[in-house]
Design a binder for these strands. Structure first.
Lengths: 370, 370
DNA sequence: TGTCGTAATGTAAGCCTTTACATCTCGCTA
DNA sequence: TAGCGAGATGTAAAGGCTTACATTACGACA
C-alpha cells in the first residue's frame, strides 16, 4: 500500500476540504478515507492482479493452492491497494470466525490476567484469535456479553465458573456454541471445565490453619450468591470446621466486593468483633492484601496477633508484606490446557475434555500459631 | 426461545444420535445444534411471525417504526426460535459495528485495567462494545491485532502510546479507521490523544528527588526503544538532571522487561554498583515493587538506605511496604475521556479531541533525604 | 498422436442483514 | 365520494467473501 496511500494520505490539504462531505460519507455508512477512496475489496485486488476473486481468496486462505507467480502478483496487488479482508463478509461466507471469546468478571486485580495471557498465547499458535470482555461481576452484563460474542460468531466461549442462568446454557446450546468453563471444577457437573476444585483447595488450607491451633475463624469473601468460586471456597472452610469438630456457625463471615479497600474495611469490622478471630481467611489475595494493610494500620502484627491467608497466589501475594500465605492456582497451566481443549475440539472435532488441576498451598509469612 | 429450545435441548438422548453426523456438520461448516437445528435466521423469524424480513429487522433496530401488535408477534417468534442476529451479516449490510477495539501491551500487572474498565463503561453507556486484545509488548503482535480488529470492522481503535511503524498509521488512514492514542500525550504530534505528558510528569518527580539531596540516581526502565512512554519518562529524568547541573550520563540505567521479578533483579544489579545510587527511579510501579522486595532481601531499608520511586500509582503502590511514592496517573479519568472523545467523534461526527490530563506526585514512604 | 489425470484457475451461487423505494391501507378533508 | 397524506409493511438489491463445481492447460503415458 506504500507508495499509493502514502501519497494520498499525505496530501495534507485534503483534510480540510469539504468537511460537509466527510459527514455525508458517514451517513452513507461507507467507510472511506477523506479522499473518498473506498476501501478496496477482494474484487479490486483480483482486477489489479488480473485474476479471479477465487484465486485471490485462495491466496489468502490456502497459499499452496496457487502457483508461485500468481501468488506473487496477488500479494503485490494487495500491498499496493492496502487491502484488508472484510471480516464480516468472510465470516458470513465461511461460517466460522476462528475466534474464541473469553468473558471474565473483571480485568482489574490481574486475577484472570495470567491465565488469559496463556490462553491467548495457546490460541494464537493455532490460528485463533481471543476476544476478551469483562462483566464487572454482574450477571446481566455477562449475559449481554455472551450474546454479543455469540452474535459475533465466536466459535467457542470460555467462561468463568459454573453459576449462571440455565437459560444461558440453553441459548448457547441452541446456537451450537461450545463452552468451556474454567477457574472451577465440579466433578458432578456435565459442563466441560478446565479448572480446579475451589472447595477442596480451601478445605486443605483450612485444615492447615486449624492445625495451627486456630479456633476462632473468619472469612472475608466475595458475594457468594453470585460467585460460585467464592461459595465453594466458603464451603471448604465450613466442611473442614465440621470435620475438626468446630461449629461452622462460629465462622465470622464478611461478604464484600473484590478490592483492596473493601478487604481493608471488612477486616476492620472483623477486628472490632467482641470475640476477635485469630485467623482470617480471604476469598482471594486482593482482599487479603487489603486486610494486611488494615492490620498494619490497626497496629496488629501478622501473624503474631492475627493470621491472614489468601487465595489465588497472584503476584500481589509475594509482594505483600508480610508475604502472603495463600493457595496457589496454576493460572498459566490452566490457560494453556483450556486453549488446547478448545483447539482440539474445534479443529479436530474431539469432544471437549475436562481437566482438574492441582492447587498448592504456599506457606509464606502470614500464617502463624494461634 | 424458552419453551422451544428447552424442549429440544433437553431431549438428552439426541446427544448420542449419529456422532458421525456431528462431524459432517462440522465439515459443512454450518453451525448447527446436535439435533440438526440450523441456527435460525431473520428469514425464519419473518416466516414464523408471518411478516417480511424488513419488518423483523425494523423490530430489532427501530422498534417504534412498527405497529405494537406486529412487534409483539415478531418478538414471540424471536423468543420461540431462539434467534440471534448474525453479526457478520449485520455488519456487512449496515457497514458499522458499534465496536471499538482497544489494544494494550499487557493485561498483566493491571496497569491498563483500570483505565480500560472506565473506557468500557463509557462506551457501553453509548451502545458501543469494547473489544480488547493484548500484544505482550511485541510490535508485530500489535500490528497483527490492529489488522485483525480493523478487519473485524472496529469503528475506531484505541492504542497505547505513539511509537509504531508509520506504515501502520498509513494503513489505518487508508482503511478510514479513526485512532485515539492514550497513556501518553505529545503536544507536537498530530495524532489525537487522551493522555498525559510522561516526560513532564517524570521530570517533576525527578525535581522532587533531587531536591531531597540525591545526586547519585538510577533508573530501572522498560525497553525504551519499543516503548515511548518509558523513553519519555527517562528523558524527563535526564532533562531535570541537566537542569539541576547533574551529569545526565551519570544516571545508572537498567533496561528490563516489566515484571516484579525483573525489577528485583535489576535493583540488585544497581545495588552492586561500586558507586551505589541513593535514589532509584522505576519506570512503573511494578518494577518499583520488585525493587522494594529486593531491598528487603538485601537488608536495605527504604528510604533510609535508598529511596525508590515508581510511576502509575496502581493499587500495588499503596499496598507495597513501605507504601510507594509514585506519580499518580488518572487512569479512570483517562478512560472516560477517551470514551467520550471516541463516541463524540463516531456518533456526532465531531473531530477527535486531544486532552492532556494532569498527573500528580503521591508522596508516600519510599522517598527520603539522601 | 490421442487420452487421461492433475494442477491451476475461473464462474457463480449463497451466506444474512439492512434499507431505499414501492405498495397498501386508512381515515380525513374538500 | 374522490383524493390525499401518513403510517405500516413489503420487495429486492447490495454488501464482500468462500467454495463447489466447471473449465482450461499441460505433461505423461500408451
Amino acid at each position: 500500500m506504500q507508495a499509493f496511500t502514502l501519497t494520498l494520505s499525505n496530501l495534507g490539504f485534503l483534510e480540510s476540504v469539504q468537511p460537509a462531505k466527510t459527514w455525508q460519507i458517514r451517513l452513507l455508512g461507507r467507510r472511506e478515507t477523506i479522499a473518498d477512496q473506498p476501501t478496496p475489496t477482494l474484487h479490486d485486488v483480483a482486477q489489479a492482479a488480473a485474476v479471479s476473486t477465487a484465486t485471490v481468496s485462495r491466496c489468502l486462505n490456502f497459499p499452496d493452492k496457487v502457483a508461485p507467480e500468481t501468488r506473487q502478483k496477488v500479494q503485490e496487488a494487495i500491498a499496493v491497494l492496502g487491502y484488508s479482508p472484510n471480516f464480516g463478509a468472510r465470516v458470513m461466507a465461511a461460517r466460522r470466525t476462528n475466534t474464541i471469546g473469553a468473558i471474565i468478571p473483571t480485568m482489574e486485580n490481574a486475577i484472570f490476567a495470567r491465565g488469559l495471557e496463556a490462553l491467548q498465547d495457546e490460541l494464537r499458535n493455532h490460528g485463533y484469535t481471543m476476544l476478551v470482555a469483562s462483566t464487572a461481576y454482574q450477571p446481566q452484563i455477562e449475559e449481554e456479553q455472551i450474546r454479543s460474542l455469540v452474535a459475533r460468531g465466536a466459535d467457542a466461549l470460555l467462561l468463568i465458573g459454573y453459576h449462571r442462568d440455565p437459560e444461558i446454557y440453553r441459548f448457547l446450546e441452541a446456537q451450537g456454541v461450545p463452552v468451556l468453563l474454567t477457574w472451577a471444577f465440579d466433578p458432578m457437573s456435565a459442563h466441560p471445565a478446565v479448572g480446579f476444585d475451589n472447595q477442596a483447595a480451601m478445605q486443605e488450607l483450612a485444615a492447615k490453619v486449624i492445625a495451627m491451633g486456630h479456633r476462632k475463624l473468619a472469612l472475608i469473601s466475595a458475594d457468594t450468591s453470585l460467585n460460585d468460586r467464592a461459595a465453594a471456597r466458603r464451603d471448604g472452610i465450613l466442611k473442614e470446621m465440621t470435620a475438626a469438630g468446630l461449629d461452622p456457625a462460629s465462622l465470622a463471615f464478611e461478604e464484600t466486593t473484590y478490592g483492596i479497600e473493601e478487604g481493608a474495611v471488612a477486616f476492620e469490622r472483623l477486628m472490632a468483633l467482641p470475640d476477635r478471630p485469630t485467623a482470617v481467611f480471604c476469598g482471594n489475595d486482593v482482599l487479603a492484601v487489603g486486610a494486611l494493610r488494615s492490620a498494619r494500620k490497626l497496629g496488629l502484627s501478622v501473624p503474631q496477633d492475627v493470621s491472614v491467608v489468601g487465595f489465588d497466589d497472584i503476584e500481589l501475594a509475594q509482594v505483600a508484606f508480610p508475604a502472603l500465605t495463600t493457595v496457589h492456582v496454576p493460572h498459566h497451566q490452566m490457560g494453556r490446557h483450556a486453549g488446547q481443549a478448545l483447539v482440539r475440539h474445534l479443529r479436530d472435532g474431539e469432544p471437549m475434555t475436562s481437566t482438574a488441576l492441582a492447587t498448592k498451598i504456599i506457606l509464606r509469612d502470614t500464617l502463624g500459631p494461634a
